[in-house]
């Protein structure tokens, strides 16, 4: 039994690709763009907001007033009659989708080694994210409580 210990660091921040962030400041001067810093900060800021938005949402939907049993078209119509809950759900949709997409981007960067695989997976991810946010936003703004059927 080997007792070899290796401490592999997490692989986010592939050094090969960081070459792209070579600064225009001058030859030999290598700096990285600030994108990953803003990404890191965004995860924390949006995370704090999402703790309140999502736990509040789950508490109302799953715990109070009979739990999930009460949810139906009439319940949604009652909630979205109020701009407060429309705004709540809009914030929740946008922040959760961007937070989740950024998290998935990190996971893809960590585990997909081939450039082509990474490009395809991220292409799929960003397409799904944009379509989902667009659809959700449209639904919140165009909701019609008197729709037939």
């Amino acid at each position: 039994m080997s007792t070899h210990v290796s401490l592999e660091p997490p692989r986010t921040g592939n050094p090969g690709r960081s070459q792209r962030y070579r600064s225009r400041k001058g030859p030999g001067k290598v700096t990285r763009g600030n994108f990953e810093l803003y990404s890191w900060l965004f995860m924390r800021a949006s995370g704090v907001l999402l703790v309140f938005l999502v736990l509040g949402h789950l508490f109302i939907m799953m715990v109070t007033d009979g739990g999930v049993e009460k949810i139906g078209f009439a319940f949604v119509a009652g909630r979205w009659a109020s701009p407060w809950w429309q705004f709540w759900d809009l914030m929740q949709l946008w922040l959760a989708m961007i937070h989740g997409t950024n998290g998935m981007r990190t996971v893809i960067n960590d585990y997909a080694d081939k450039d082509r695989t990474r490009a395809i997976l991220k292409g799929l991810l960003y397409t799904a994210a944009v379509l989902t946010v667009a659809l959700g936003t449209l639904v919140i703004f165009t909701f019609d409580p008197s729709i037939k059927g």
């Binding site: 139906g72 639904v139 019609d144 729709i147």
Partner: peptide, 11 residues
């Protein structure tokens, strides 16, 4: 998001 979007289809 997809299941909620069904509110735009019909109750």
């Amino acid at each position: 998001v997809l299941d909620t979007a069904l509110v735009r289809v019909s109750p």
